[in-house]
């Protein structure tokens, strides 16, 4: 194999994207933990750490640009780099949603939840798993796996709808529940959006492998 340096750069890029993904999973988990524990301090940490993730996106974008400038990649390598640039944007947006959840947690000021948290942590867990599997599919160049991950988004959408329906009943029953209901609805919505971004990532994995733009 020649062009070892180039190969090393591409491998390093994959590792960096995995690292970024892990950090974002951690952000979601922390955001949910802070919500469950009504821990404003932990929530603030998620918000503060979002800057690190923003910076990672910029650094990775520059890294892709440099590889393109120096190595003039074509075909599969070029598609992978284009996909990388798109994927890191979606990963960064997922981190924003984690920060949004954290902001809601702080805004709730330790108020009791109008109902026990069951499905919201499930959504977060599912979203994190999807993100991790989507990034693995990118690194392992596995379009089939990406298509499967994208399909999991339906479950997330269903959970969100179910949560909204349930919260509505609580709010109709008791207007005092409206504020708390809306807060949880927002949080559910943020987590539902995580799935949409993962779906985008999966589409870019398919593009990297096949050169085709699929609507997954």
């Amino acid at each position: 194999m020649i062009r070892q340096h180039y190969e090393d750069d591409l491998a390093e890029l994959s590792r960096e994207i995995m690292k970024m993904g892990l950090r974002v999973e951690e952000a979601i988990n922390k955001a949910i933990d802070s919500l469950k524990a009504k821990d404003a301090e932990l929530a603030q940490q998620v918000i503060d750490e979002d800057d690190i993730i923003d910076q990672m996106e910029k650094d990775l974008c520059d890294k892709c640009a440099l590889i393109i400038a120096r190595e003039q990649p074509v075909a599969g390598d070029l598609r992978h780099l284009i996909s990388a640039i798109k994927i890191i944007t979606d990963i960064e947006r997922i981190a924003d949603h984690a920060a949004h959840v954290a902001k809601r947690t702080i805004a709730m000021q330790g108020e009791d939840f109008i109902k026990p948290l069951v499905d919201i942590p499930r959504m977060a867990e599912l979203g994190c798993g999807m993100l991790s599997r989507a990034i693995t599919a990118y690194v392992e160049k596995d379009a089939e796996a990406a298509i499967k991950v994208a399909a999991e988004d339906d479950t997330l959408d269903e959970l969100h709808k179910q949560i909204v329906r349930e919260l509505l009943t609580y709010m109709i029953e008791k207007p005092q529940n409206i504020e708390g209901g809306i807060a949880l609805m927002y949080i559910s919505r943020f987590l539902e959006r995580v799935g949409d971004h993962v779906r985008n990532i999966c589409e870019w994995v398919v593009f990297a492998e096949t050169g085709e733009h699929e609507n997954l």
Binding site: M1, I2, R3, V74, A75, G76, L78
Partner: peptide, 18 residues
């Protein structure tokens, strides 16, 4: 050929891998 070649050998060659 340069964006989505059909043959893996073409891909390797144009990518400078052999």
């Amino acid at each position: 050929i340069f964006f989505n070649p059909a043959s893996p050998k073409t891909e390797e060659y144009i990518s400078g891998k052999f």
